[in-house]
Design a protein around this nucleic acid. Structure first.
Lengths: 105, 105
DNA sequence: ATAATCTATCGTATATTTACGATGAACGAT
DNA sequence: ATCGTTCATCGTAAATATACGATAGATTAT
């Protein structure tokens, strides 16, 4: 089975792994960086900036939306994407918690 | 194709995505936490602490070794795993760079 | 030497991920 | 009303990820 056995793990660890999964593709890293730089961005602009087809970019956006790191607001025929600051801050906090145990040596 | 198209992306983004991928499973998050708490840990101990078979745990350890976040030293018949502090610090630094652009608002 | 222990790897099955083109739904413009 | 634009979703193909048991290799103990 390729299904992660989530039964035996803390929800905290499952959540953090899920966030990490959403960051586990260069396109999604790039999308987050673009959105942080531009604050907001139309989906079409992202398609132009990435070496991927429109449908593939849409899939990556869906993955980032799934974990709540970004949100998309419909503006007429276009969709305006932006960072969900609160979610990103929580992700940063949890990752710091993981890393700082080590770096406090 | 399921292969990530890495041609069109910055090596920096590819690297960070790869680190994130190595963190994208609850078992590997747990392993890192255990190793940071215990400093060092035998592979067998990790198997006891995780709800997974020995071979599966070994696979997860291999993934963390692949990206350099941990290292394993053979001690007789056992293998002693520990965190690679430098790699983890670099990962933290790069992730902060991604997150801080947002949080500096 | 033999047995027991520990861990990595192999083989395998299944689920998920990634990618693309094609299609569909929603909206604005003509 | 029709057309063009924008984006999500569907269908599909191929690679990867996850999990396990079985096996192999190395080391220690007997």
């Amino acid at each position: 089975m390729a299904v992660s056995k989530k039964e035996g793990f803390k929800t905290e660890d499952v959540w953090l792994a899920d966030i990490a999964k959403s960051l586990s593709h260069p396109a999604r890293i790039r999308i987050l960086k673009i959105l942080t730089e531009m604050n907001v961005c139309m989906c079409g602009d992202l398609v132009d900036l990435l070496p991927l087809s429109q449908s593939t970019v849409s899939q990556h956006l869906k993955e980032l939306k799934r974990v709540g790191l970004i949100q998309g607001d419909i503006e007429g025929p276009k969709v305006c994407y932006c960072i969900n600051i609160k979610a990103l801050q929580k992700a940063k906090k949890e990752l710091d918690k993981l890393f700082n145990q080590v770096c406090a040596c």
